[in-house]
Design a binder for these strands. Structure first.
Length: 577
DNA sequence: GCCGTTTTCGGCCCGACTGTTTTCAGTCG
């Protein structure tokens, strides 16, 4: 798969072009960055796109025109790219590595090369150690310090953090701001509000006229490790959890504009802003303005979208995946909401197990958050590390469920189920008879992740065709950050699921979120139902459902496609069919 | 270099903060 290689190359070309002083160069920079974004976020291998559809297929991709498509073709055919090599000869430095450092961009990197011979991270380290940078023209003590700090940061904490780890911290800070009495409103914006599975930083917006007091309060919070930048409208800090966090304090008249601006991803905002321009307005982070510069008095971001003639959509959809165009035509269907979820279709609950709570506390916790039912789906015998049960043990366990259901007296219903291992050959880890006695069976792959694609596909499809499973658990097997999805032909899985009336799971564990948003978009082209499961092993983990719902919303999934939006009688009818 | 129910040419989103300056360049989002 060349996607990452090519995306990196195009980003590096963009960095090198940003050193070019021709007036049109900065637009070329943007073009290359956009192409890198497109290719980097594609699911399908770019070389497959090319193999199947040739240049025409490449030109279909957003931000890819004749020039860049030509470079892609050249790279696929020859393994080289003339444009890249030409620029690399002019700027023989590790642009990707150096500009990966916070505060160090292409121009400064090149200045370091010209003056000090810095060409990569190791030579940069030497220059830092010799304190040569501060003496350069255009640099100073502070810039040297900043580069050193940026380098330390990079080495300490590479990359992004799971939404499930970051969002609760952000929401805690918002809570503290609200309780301070200094703000009239506050919220988490940015990629966390869009429920992206990982976030690179946090954006918090506060509505207040007392910016200096709010900033002072903010930098005193215990979550904060150090201050990166402090200004009247924006303060940037490093949090102890290893993530940067920006707080913006915004007065009332600009708040709606800021919420809109700091929620959508960059491309979404560009699309919306272009619509604003086409209607004679200007849209920026302060709000919507007419030609005379008069602000449109929006109370909420809904007002702004309405004024622009764009159907309002939830944050999760604002990713520039075609939502703006549809919303202009009022054709966007609203996705499922957390309150639509009536039950949980993947949970664990066992006595005498270190990593799992017992069934009764699990049932009480589920009841407390308002669920009407949940499927108890414990592991099966092949999964020894999780105390997987055999047929006999399930039989006994179900007697326990019957008793507990009686005791719960209809306040919540526990469905009998299992998360049955799909074994190497596609057979299932329990006897047919046992599986047939269950209400709800999740079939999951937990072993031999390195099978060839064809074999893995056959394995899962065979399980789907067994007629014994209700849904495929975490269908791609990925676990963030370390484990990639196993190789599997998902289209074949979707086809089999469609024709065998088997659902696909959206596993809501923050490190799984599997299927993910783009998988869901692809899968929902088929006539498939989806099941959401928290995969809770402990009582607080029922709350993971919100991440599953967020992922479903990012995949534009409507509630009628999701089994656990049904109430209990409907689910029981569905199951019996 | 890309793109088009305003255009196949002439546009391309926009502002905050910092550091090193004395009006601005670089970086970031």
């Amino acid at each position: 798969m060349y996607n990452k290689i090519l995306a990196d190359m195009f980003n590096e070309i963009a960095a090198m072009l940003s050193l070019d002083d021709r007036p049109t160069a900065r637009f070329e920079v943007r073009a290359y960055q956009k192409a890198a974004m497109t290719i980097g976020s594609m699911q399908e291998a770019i070389e497959d796109v090319y193999r199947k559809g040739g240049m025409a297929a490449l030109l279909e991709l957003p931000g890819i025109g004749k020039g860049i498509a030509g470079s892609i073709e050249e790279y696929i055919k020859t393994g080289k790219m003339e444009k890249y090599q030409y620029l690399k000869k002019m700027y023989p430095i590790d642009m990707k590595g150096l500009t990966g450092i916070q505060g160090l961009g292409a121009r400064k990197a090149f200045a370091l090369y010209k003056n000090l011979g810095v060409k990569d991270i190791p030579t940069l380290k030497k220059a830092l150690a010799a304190h040569k940078i501060a003496k350069l023209e255009g640099f100073g003590e502070k810039s040297e310090e900043m580069i050193q700090k940026g380098l330390d940061l990079l080495e300490r904490s590479a990359g992004r953090m799971l939404l499930g780890d970051a969002l609760p911290v952000a929401e805690g800070i918002v809570q503290e701001l609200k309780e301070s009495g200094l703000v009239d409103d506050a919220l988490v914006a940015g990629s966390a509000r869009r429920m992206r599975e990982t976030v690179g930083d946090l954006d918090i917006l506060a509505l207040s006229e007392k910016s200096d007091k709010v900033m002072k309060f903010f930098i005193g919070l215990s979550e904060i490790e150090s201050i990166i930048a402090e200004g009247p409208t924006k303060t940037a800090v490093r949090l102890k959890i290893g993530l940067n966090c920006d707080l913006r304090v915004i007065p009332f008249e600009n708040f709606a504009g800021a919420v809109q601006y700091f929620t959508g991803n960059k491309d979404h905002n560009v699309e919306v802003r272009k619509i604003a321009i086409s209607k004679g307005y200007k849209l920026n982070e302060y709000g919507l303005f007419d030609k005379k510069g008069k602000i449109f008095p929006a109370k909420t971001e809904e007002d702004i979208y309405a004024k622009l003639g764009i159907q309002f959509m939830p944050p999760e959809m604002r990713e520039a995946r075609g939502e703006v165009k549809l919303a202009q035509q009022n054709l966007l269907k609203m996705p499922v909401e957390l309150k639509d979820i009536k039950g949980d279709l993947h949970t664990h609950g066992l006595d005498n197990n270190n990593s799992t709570d017992s069934l009764e506390p699990m049932a009480n916790a589920a009841m407390k958050i308002g669920l009407k039912y949940f499927a108890s789906t414990n592991h099966t015998k092949s999964l020894r590390v999780e105390n997987g049960m055999n047929d006999k043990q399930f039989e006994k366990f179900f007697i326990q469920i019957d008793k507990l259901n009686k005791k719960l007296d209809g306040k919540i219903r526990i469905l009998k189920g299992a998360e049955v291992d799909i074994l190497k050959d596609g057979s299932l880890d329990l006897e047919d008879k046992t599986l047939r006695s269950m209400d709800w069976v999740v079939g999951s792959v937990h072993s031999l992740f390195n099978m060839p694609e064809a074999e893995m596909t056959k394995r899962v499809v065979k399980a789907i065709e067994s007629g014994l499973i209700s849904t495929v658990g975490h269908p791609t097997g990925r676990e963030m950050p370390a484990r990639d999805a196993y190789k599997i032909n998902l289209d074949k899985v979707y086809e089999a699921a469609e024709s065998n009336n088997v659902a696909l799971e959206i596993n809501a564990q923050p490190r799984r979120l599997d299927l993910n948003d783009t998988n869901i978009m692809n899968a929902s082209k088929y006539k498939i139902k989806f099941s959401l499961g928290s995969d809770a092993h402990r009582t607080p983990q029922f709350a993971y459902m919100r991440y599953g719902v967020g992922t479903a919303r990012r995949g534009w999934l409507t509630k009628d496609r999701i089994i656990n939006t049904m109430d209990l009688p409907s689910v029981l009818r569905y199951i019996s069919k």
